[in-house]
Design a protein around this nucleic acid. Sequence first.
DNA 1: ATGGCCATACAGACCGGTCTGAATGGTCTT
DNA 2: AAGACCATTCAGACCGGTCTGTATGGCCAT
Lengths: 200, 200
Amino acid sequence: MTRVIETSSVRDRILATASDLFYRQGYRATGVNQVIAASGVAKASFYSHFPSKDDLLYAYLAAAARQDLDDLHAEVEARSGAKARFFAPLEMLVPWFESSDYRGCPFQNIVAEAPPSDPRVRTLARAHRDNVRTLLRTLAEDVLNQRPPARRPAAPPLDPDALAEVYQLLLEGAIATAVAYRTRRPVDKAIQTLEHLLEA
Amino acid sequence: MTRVIETSSVRDRILATASDLFYRQGYRATGVNQVIAASGVAKASFYSHFPSKDDLLYAYLAAAARQDLDDLHAEVEARSGAKARFFAPLEMLVPWFESSDYRGCPFQNIVAEAPPSDPRVRTLARAHRDNVRTLLRTLAEDVLNQRPPARRPAAPPLDPDALAEVYQLLLEGAIATAVAYRTRRPVDKAIQTLEHLLEA
DNA sequence: ATGGCCATACAGACCGGTCTGAATGGTCTT
DNA sequence: AAGACCATTCAGACCGGTCTGTATGGCCAT
């Protein structure tokens, strides 16, 4: 029956509320009491689902990572043509950047707050980044295969792995830059640069 | 006595200690009491120099911005040749990335912790970024002037402003990426990409 | 003797986390 | 079908500790 679903309802409510607060206010600035009050949950219920605030943080990061990958795949699948799909990850940033509550990359923000002695957060962030680059690599592969085979005798940055690395560099740069400027400009710059590399 | 050497006035001692702690541990994770204890200062003295913790934060950001610009200029001036100077800002990142206590960009970290309602921190971060881009623009100008005048009829990204923007995008991307990976790899990738753009 | 510094105690708020106790509702036994 | 049972949730008091910031008082040098 609905047993399993309703069993996770309270937990989901807490996690959704905490995700919102952690992203908007930061991890340390958000107290468990606030999460409990905002999610309309008893304190004992909270601690039965998340034995400590750290556990809630890990759940938050795991959920954010999965959602990000899901969004990326959805945006890619919604487009047709190797080139359109290739630029999907960059272009989907535009509405996010221009939204009023854009606060940068959740992982970078949490890593900035986490003590460097705790490697778990950093490990999660790196794993997510690796997953994203894997996706970028397949997109790069497709877009390179669809190119005229060789305009030049293969300049160095034209293998899929290298292209994916540059792509991620520009992606991270755009995400970081937009925190200060909140414009689609870094996205356009990144796209121009990648187009330039593809045409070389 | 040691007084003269410790001319580093009380204020400077506090600021130096706080800068270290803020960068290594984060702003919220560092209490005023810890700053006071670590800098060997009385609490009253601390509050006479910095009326609130926020004031200390602003002083920290201002000092970090100035030091960063000074370092950039010093590294540029230490090199000769437009191209060597052009890549100085990227190459000076390498020893920083590989040092064990690299914790990313101080401004990004502080912005991640600052409440979005307080615009002052974000304003300082944007101002510093603008200053850096101004420097990058002059470097770009020099390196473009020293190029053979026109290999092509001027592809779009070859004016100094656009090149400086791409440069900063790659710079920010490298700084952010290195938090997770701690390698000089993103620096090399960024340099390759810029070289590629210059040769176009 | 005045002003800067030190040392320390203190205030009030908030932190993460524990605990008690009661209401709810589904499941199992009889 | 009725009652015992059990897990989950709710509401909130409470704990020790830490937070920022204030106040007090002594010391020392100019």
